[in-house]
Simulated assay, not measured.
Amino acid sequence: MNPLRKDPQQRLMGLYRDLPDAEREMLLAFAEFLATRGGRKDVPVPEPQAIPRPEEETVIKAMKRLSSTYPMLDKARLLNETSMLMSQHMLQGREAREVIDDLEAVFARHYRELCEGGQ
């Protein structure tokens, strides 16, 4: 049987089984996000991934870390604020550590709003 013609639920389960543990967690978090975005209120918002902040980190790497920490957030909703902060660093020379602090605050605020049902 052609694997593309399988039942979608079977395909999804096969993909899930083939993923490493970290990617399984991301897939589950994304599925929960989609369920809440679709109006389901009974699906709890997943917890952020515990990814510690390195001592030395670039703004770009911080964005990647924060995106992995909060896979349940809609990145399009973050785009305006995060791009403004990245521009302050790249174009205006604002200190990376300060920008990363602000990026962490933006992601945390959006997560709180999601938990409160505001997103």
Rank of each mutant, 00 (worst) to 15 (best):
R5A: 12
R5K: 12
R5V: 07
Q10F: 00
R11D: 06
G14M: 05
R17M: 07
R17P: 00
L19K: 01
L19M: 10
P20L: 05
D21P: 10
A22M: 04
E25C: 02
M26R: 15
L27I: 08
L27N: 05
L28Y: 05
F30E: 15
F33Q: 13
F33V: 01
A35D: 02
G39S: 08
K41H: 12
D42I: 05
V45C: 04
P46C: 12
E47T: 02
A50P: 03
V59F: 00
K61L: 08
M63W: 00
S67E: 13
P71C: 07
K75P: 04
L79S: 13
N80V: 10
E81V: 06
E81M: 06
E81K: 09
M84C: 12
L85H: 02
L85C: 06
Q88H: 09
M90D: 10
M90I: 12
L91M: 13
G93I: 14
R94D: 06
E95K: 15
I100E: 01
I100V: 15
D102R: 11
L103D: 00
L103A: 01
E104G: 15
A105T: 09
F107E: 01
A108I: 04
H110T: 06
R112D: 13
E116A: 13
G118W: 09
Q119Y: 11
